[in-house]
Design a protein around this nucleic acid. Structure first.
Lengths: 291, 291
DNA sequence: AATTTCACCTGACTAAAGTCAGAAGAAATA
DNA sequence: TATTTCTTCTGACTTTAGTCAGGTGAAATT
């Protein structure tokens, strides 16, 4: 008996479907149809545009409208018009709505916590979930412009530094690396891009403006759970198009031979190796590309 | 930004829910409500008892009855009475029903295959799925009596041998291990138990009858994806209760110090170390327990 | 043999989900 | 300015899902 990959995926689907079924049942326990509960959860604590909810839950406009009315009747939500565009409307939760929202959150969080608590290797379980979520969500990974000091950017950069520290024989100390002025990676001089996979920061790249006639690509990183999905290539090509828009014609970057997959990627993407162009202690490989 | 375990699980849930939503949509594309499609899939190519389907899908008797009628009206299924008990009825698929069944299978298999094909490490993805399915399904793991030559038993035994070969410094050759007569692990002399987690063989143990006044526990194994869920303990306790029913009062087993978690388990379960009682080349630790 | 239990069915519902055709107000475009 | 396009709403549906109270044979129990 060899168990086919397809059979294993089927088993996974069955287990997960059962689990969500149980959760839905517990949601019903709060005395509200699932549709209304889903809308309440989609509104969220910060409020959300009606059109946004519709796209997210893939609901008919009539159906959503009625579900919002039912939440309003319950005193859980209120819908107000968007001052910027009076056609659009924004749904918010009332204080009672926030309480109900928290109650739903706690139902699912309790289940999640119980799953973690009784598992012998919670970290392995979470890593497996990240891997699957990234594989399933690869088409939904979006690359967004992000301030280098924003929370998702910092999350990526810290993961990146930690990985360099683990992979470089001499370790890696961000303080010793070439100083990086955040302003160089903010418009109009440059840009910092973060890849978000269902909200999880899963990769980043910086385009750093200089005064030397070229711009640099810095801090290219892809989360382990998202590797192999072509994300590095997408990040690079997006950074390049930003450069083109800014009128930059030459790009440079440096890397280290301890990261062979990076050098391989640059070559595949049309970069050429050049002589050392800075005195940063960590890199030992240097590339250039005209865009 | 540290991403909390709960947030990671939420992201996983979102990804998986989206995926199943897409699959359900594609199922609807075959022009049949989901309920009917689910029943059709539950019947399966071999047919299935109506009560069984009801328990499996958790459906009301009236609802299932009507869904079966609708499948009959479409010419996809037929329900006949169970000759052994004329109250019970068994649903079968007609040739057209089998075709529809295959069409649904292929819809989900195609998605599954596409996921595998475009992933850089399919085996890692599958291992992650196994891990999660086992964690979610731990309460549903059932231990069944199984012939030592049945497919699930052979799957377990081969996995077990492969693992011993990897963990023993001198390797492991099943041919050199003590001869094991399958009849000794079949009733009435003994029993072979397999743990099934949603259909995946995830562990096994053999109770081997001898003519020396004791029975032996052999081939205790738990799949990596199911470790830490207390399965070994459940297998052992079930084997012991079989022994008790058979009137056996003394159990023995042998193991190897290269498997420290096994020896630890035996001690926790009340086994006492004894002198070597056989001349099998592989074991170097011997235990006994009175039941 | 009488009764109780079981498996399944039908009829008669209710509730939830989803569809579709307007309509009204606002913004974008010609 | 006229028109077209958006966004959302309401009313009038249909379909699907789910519930519940009998009822009919058949098997199990007393």
């Amino acid at each position: 008996m060899t168990l086919s990959p397809i059979a294993r995926i089927r088993r996974f689907n069955r287990a997960v479907t059962t689990e969500t079924g149980v959760l839905d049942q517990s949601f019903l326990g709060r005395g509200r149809p699932l549709g209304a509960a889903r809308v309440l959860n989609a509104i969220g604590p910060t409020g959300r545009a009606v059109s946004d909810i519709r796209a997210f839950l893939d609901l008919d406009t009539g159906l959503l409208s009625r579900l919002l009315r039912s939440l309003e009747d319950e005193g859980l939500a209120s819908v107000t018009e968007d001052p910027a565009d009076k056609r659009r409307r924004i749904a918010h939760l009332t204080p009672e709505g926030l309480r109900e929202y928290a109650a739903y959150e706690s139902l699912s969080d309790t289940r999640a916590q119980a799953l973690l608590d009784r598992h012998p290797h919670p970290e392995a379980l979470l890593a497996a979930m990240d891997l699957i979520a990234s594989a399933l969500g690869r088409d939904r990974i979006e690359i967004v412009e992000s301030d280098p000091h924003s929370a998702p950017a910092i999350f990526c950069l810290e993961s990146y530094y930690a990985e360099l520290a683990a992979r470089f024989a001499m370790g890696f100390d961000p303080a010793k690396a070439a100083r990086l002025d955040s302003d160089d990676m903010r418009p109009p001089r440059g840009v910092f891009l973060v890849a978000l996979s269902d909200g999880l920061p899963s990769g980043c790249v910086g385009l750093k403006g200089t005064d030397k006639g070229y711009a640099e690509i810095k801090r290219l990183w892809v989360a382990p759970s998202a590797r192999g999905l072509g994300l590095a290539k997408r990040l690079m090509s997006k950074a390049e198009s930003y450069a083109r828009e800014m009128g930059i014609t030459t790009l440079r970057l440096d890397t280290n031979s301890a990261l062979p997959e990076a050098a391989g990627l640059y070559q595949r993407l049309g970069w050429s190796e050049i002589e050392r162009f800075n005195d940063d202690p960590y890199p030992d490989l240097f590339f250039e590309k005209r865009v």
